[in-house]
Amino acid sequence: MRSQSRIAFYLLLTPLVLWLGLLIIIPHIDMLLISLRERISFGVYETSLTQYEKALTEPLYLRTFARTAVMSVLATAITLLIAFPVAYYIAKMAKGRLQQVLFMLCLIPFYVSELVRTFGWMILLRETGIISNLLQWTGLADQPVELLYTDATMMVGLVYTSMLFMVVPLVTTLESLDDSVVEAGYDLGGNGLSVLREIIIPHAMPGIVSGCIVVFMLSLGNYLTPTMLGGKDSLWFTEMIYNQFIVRSNWELGAAFGFMLLLLSSVIVWGMLRLTGRTLKETMG
């Protein structure tokens, strides 16, 4: 009986171990090894830190790296600012059917692929697009307006793409906030701002942190949105990784970039948890 349950345990564990091992750990080790070598000539490689040295000394790579990080943090902050009132409305003010409908509205954009959604933005914002035509028709603009290919457009796209992943954890944590706790906050003399700061936000903190982590990771790892909406000035670290791997066939530098990105996201997530005094276990558990 005991040995049977042990067998069952290992059988159940096997897929997880295989998944982690084959798809995550082994490829990462392989990537690490690739990032640590240098091409000498055809098929001849040597172990060295040249790739990391190159990544850290070339101003272009560093700038892109920093830009990607800063823009992702900004996108996360904007997403939080927009998603919080939305989530609060869905969780606390909307009732019954309206609540479900609003939640569905947040979900519907994700029924289509990211590519299609991004094309949707392009149709709206391009020079011969809907908004440009609308502006001309209403007389607000006297010539076609190009709304694509700017950092602001890219930011709009990133925020839009990330919205759901912020709203869902926020709605979940805010729903668990007892209405009477908020009322007690007012009853004991609090105003809107202090109730928000002392009661609602501390309560929603697990949702805020996990939402921010997910959105930050998504933005950092996004490839389509920066490339398509950002246009000629879009410079995103994932694009550089893609370029090194696919276009340049320079897997060594690409792998080094990949590890820098992994490190960056780990550091920022760790920093976010430290800043809010939470552990990963509390946030994800």
Partner: peptide, 29 residues
């Protein structure tokens, strides 16, 4: 408004603030 009335309320499920200590709860008002 409720936050200005000289009336306070003990709620059905008490509605203590779980994110604060006891002293912070009592000192909130």
């Amino acid at each position: 408004p409720p936050n200005k009335r000289p009336v306070n309320m003990v709620f059905q499920h008490l509605a203590l603030f779980p994110m604060m200590t006891i002293a912070e709860n009592i000192g909130y008002g």
